[in-house]
Design a protein around this nucleic acid. Structure first.
Lengths: 385, 385
DNA sequence: CTCGCTGATATGAACGATCAAGTCGCCCCC
DNA sequence: GGGGGCGACTTGATCGTTCATATCAGCGAG
């Protein structure tokens, strides 16, 4: 059995077992043992088609036997690329959108690794600090590019990074920028809330309210507009069923109480965040109502809490894995210089239907709306580029 | 103004503004411009005491002027150290101990950066996969060492890493290993639950129950024993007030219902996780009881949910920042070879008192226990090594 | 006066890979 | 049969540092 194959064997690789720890096999050793030159070994790994099949076989055999792996530092020095992606570690406010960013980091690591890249993380308190760290990492050639999360109105980071000549891709549209000079990947929040509306309509609802954030937040407005467009397009009488406030469970509860007090209260609520949705469910509980039976609630982000809540929360789930894959692909294209013009990529989320959204009560709507629409199951299409 | 100082200026560093992007200043350029040799420039950064003050001044001036920063790859190649720490990204099950591991990663990045190290993360599904990735990272000399989180009984990772000659520190004691050959840092869970008991006794409680995990989990047992020892030492009649089950909100609720049905139910509960504590609070709610008034509840981990819960949850908070600092310090010592024998470090958590723990009702306990103990405030001592 | 020592700086040689030119057969075609 | 072209490999140079050693001036001791 070859050393590289038993790399995970109890004793660890050969070079670790005997001799000084920092004497890994180099390309030279492989070359000598295989009776070829360095370059041939290098080619065996990087351009196999250049070798005669038998030579390739022999070299690969020796590589495997010695457990050779190219030194990252040496390769990095020569090729001027670190094969590392930098990414700011965002505070995961577990209640809100936190779970999403956590999933993103995981998916990013996976996607990067599958392309031979590593992910380097750093924790900073502000965008300014983030740029300081980026500057440092770029200066030391520690990373080849960045993934920028949490874009927002008036974000100075894209401009700065562009000016610094750094490669990067943003997760999130360049809110407020007319014609952005950089690539981005984002999730179509409007499509998500729109699907949520359709999902509820399919369940027989027609008075579908919306809990949204105050105007001015990119993603918040986007999601709100999805609800707005969908209800308008379907001709639903919902324009008065909107309540907006800062994100949070308390907010959601307060807003819901307000909407429920209306003369014609909504029979379903589309919330632009799970925190708001949790608040909505609580407000219902306080009135002795059950989410999904008396009033349906759909959240956004499918955060971990969604599935542990008492009536499990229906929620719009973002295709984070696909987002990460796209981010990495685009970033690598950007780094390799393949990319001529900035790329844009908008992925669609989908509704995960759980107990908190159920059929409308005939008595509640006053009339039954008959609409032919796809069934909830068909929403589970994950768009992967 | 020097280029390095205006590195964060709108235009970005000089080398980015004009000329090809990958033409960073090298040590050679600095040397030529300062009229000295490479080595002198190198010394200016790495061994300033070797230079005559005036020379040092001049060299530093040029370094600053050109915005020179040593190439990570070149230095890494020569010194055979990557200045990078590897760390597995753990799934943050937001309900459970997830928040803790998230905090850990943040703190780890901060602590590492302050020592000139970077943190490289990877996401894997199992311990076996983790070792595969470690093997890969070691093979490519991509990292100098690892932080191992989530140690458990029968953990094969320490042994494997030791055999592979890798440097690492564990967050978590080597549960079940007689005399561990590796360094670790951990939080004294027993001390935490013990403090929780004392906190509750100070509030007048004497029938203090415990929600614990099934025997066999390292941290779970540790925390349970803290409650056990504290109640025994104080002579409290609590031995029957124990309920154990898997972690989770449902579990906590079920266990609490069981304890509340006892002829002499507990007036306070120490829970070995926040998830269990949340369950406990829910069980109380179902009976129309209020946590902190009728029955006190103390959780463990101070997860994000603790402070957003309805009666804000008292919880034992781990000094994660101190843990991270220690992990990094120990790991670096290990890497530098300074460390002769494995180091062990046990830090104390403390109780964060919130609404869910309050004074015992005189009627509930049957008698008022008068004990002189430190006030809740005095528990807020953060031990930082 | 010379030797040895020390402090300050300079020079050559790694580190381990890849790139850019070689070299060497071999076959084919005019 | 000479030369062009190509496939398969080799050889030198290079990436930007730091290590190990050399140089060289100044100075005190024998």
């Amino acid at each position: 059995m070859a050393a590289a194959q038993r790399g995970r064997a109890p004793g660890g690789p050969d070079w670790a077992r005997s001799g000084p720890r920092d004497k890994r096999p180099t390309i030279e050793m492989v070359a000598k043992r295989a009776g070829v030159s360095r370059q041939t070994v290098s080619n065996a790994a990087n351009a196999p088609h250049r070798l005669r099949p038998e030579t390739l076989q022999k070299v690969l055999g020796v590589i495997d036997e010695l457990g050779y792996r190219p030194s990252k530092a040496a390769r990095s020095l020569r090729t001027r690329s670190s094969q590392v992606i930098g990414c700011r570690l965002l505070p995961s406010n577990a209640g809100g959108t936190g779970g999403v960013l956590d999933r993103l980091l995981h998916a990013l690591c996976d996607a990067a690794r599958s392309k031979g890249y590593d992910v380097l993380t750093f924790s900073v308190a502000s965008d300014d600090e983030e740029l300081e760290v980026c500057d440092d990492l770029l200066g030391r050639s520690a990373v080849d590019g960045f993934v920028l999360a949490n874009t927002h109105y008036g974000d100075v980071r894209p401009e700065w990074l562009t000016a610094a000549g750094a490669h990067f891709v943003a997760f999130g549209r360049p809110w407020g920028e007319a014609n952005p000079a950089h690539s981005w990947v984002d999730v179509d929040g409007a499509a998500g809330t729109s699907e949520a509306v359709h999902h509820l309509v399919a369940l027989g609802h027609s008075r579908i309210g919306c809990l949204a954030l105050p105007e001015g937040s990119g993603t918040g407005d986007d999601r709100f507009h999805g609800w707005q467009r969908a209800t308008a397009a379907l001709g639903l009488p919902c324009s008065t069923l909107v309540a907006r406030a800062e994100d949070g469970i308390r907010s959601g509860k307060a807003l819901t109480e307000k909407l429920l007090s209306l003369p014609e209260p909504p029979t379903a609520l589309v919330c632009v965040s799970d925190a708001l949705a949790v608040g909505a469910v609580r407000a219902l509980e306080d009135r002795g109502l059950v989410a999904g039976r008396d009033v349906s609630v759909v959240g956004f982000d499918d955060s971990p809490v969604a599935s542990v809540l008492r009536p499990r929360l229906s929620s719009v789930r973002q295709p984070i894995e696909a987002v990460a894959q796209n981010l990495v692909e685009v970033l690598l294209a950007e780094i390799s210089g393949t990319q001529r013009r900035p790329s844009r990529c908008l992925l669609s989320p989908w509704v995960v239907a759980r107990e908190s959204s159920g059929p409308a009560l005939a008595g509640a709507t006053g009339r039954t709306t008959l609409v032919t629409l796809p069934t909830p199951d068909s929403y589970r299409k994950e768009q992967s580029r």
